[in-house]
């Protein structure tokens, strides 16, 4: 009898692995990019279809190979976002890893996004937050008058984790002392 070979989508997926001589990261990550079409409603479906995965990496060197070729957030125009999430987590509230979570949001005056984004993602990739597996990913959102960076975590009810993320953000971003930081749960954002 002929045997049918089933390829599950799970096994078909490409998982990034560190190359020989490269420095592995604690987690694999994926870069995503999204750009909102002006005038379109931001429904879940249009959000998902607007978001494009750029690629995944597993080592420090692979990260730089992506990042060095990417446009800096400060040079983006229009309503655009870069997302850097752990491989397997979609940068959406609806993802299982995110649905009970929340995010720290920092609004930045124009001109600061590129430097802050780089410092944020280097801290995340280097495991500087020290909150176990709580971090899901980070986003930089380029808007008309200001830019926004955010870092998402799994458990919005975990006060110790949220405090630790905030303190690490203050340290690694070297923000002006009057910078306002706001924590939002994703269930609040949906409302």
């Amino acid at each position: 009898a002929k045997k049918k070979v089933c390829v599950s989508p799970k096994y078909n997926a490409t998982i990034a692995v560190p190359g020989v001589g490269e420095h592995p990261l604690q987690y694999n990550y994926s870069f995503w990019y999204s750009r909102r079409t002006p005038g379109r409603p931001a429904s879940t479906q249009s959000y998902e279809s607007n978001i494009k995965q750029i690629g995944s990496f597993a080592s420090v060197e692979q990260f730089w190979r992506f990042y060095s070729h990417m446009i800096r957030p400060g040079d983006l125009t229009g309503h655009s976002d870069f997302h850097l999430f752990k491989e397997g987590i979609k940068p959406m509230w609806e993802d299982d890893a995110n649905k009970l979570g929340g995010k720290w949001i920092i609004r930045l005056r124009k001109g600061l996004a590129s430097r802050c984004w780089e410092n944020l993602i280097l801290a995340m990739l280097g495991e500087q937050f020290m909150v176990g597996g709580e971090i899901c990913g980070a986003v930089v959102s380029v808007r008309f008058q200001e830019d926004i960076i955010s870092i998402w975590n799994k458990t919005a009810s975990d006060q110790a984790t949220i405090t630790r993320i905030r303190d690490t953000l203050r340290r690694v971003l070297n923000l002006p002392p009057n910078t306002i930081m706001e924590y939002k749960t994703h269930t609040d954002s949906i409302k």
Binding site: G19, Q26, V60, E61, W64, R65, S68, L122, G126, E127
Partner: peptide, 21 residues
């Protein structure tokens, strides 16, 4: 368990490695 921690300075140094190009 053990976690792989890198500081900013080390990550930036890796950028100039031939493997990062």
């Amino acid at each position: 368990g053990t976690r792989i921690i890198y500081d900013r300075k080390f990550l930036l140094e890796c950028r100039s490695s031939p493997l990062a190009r």
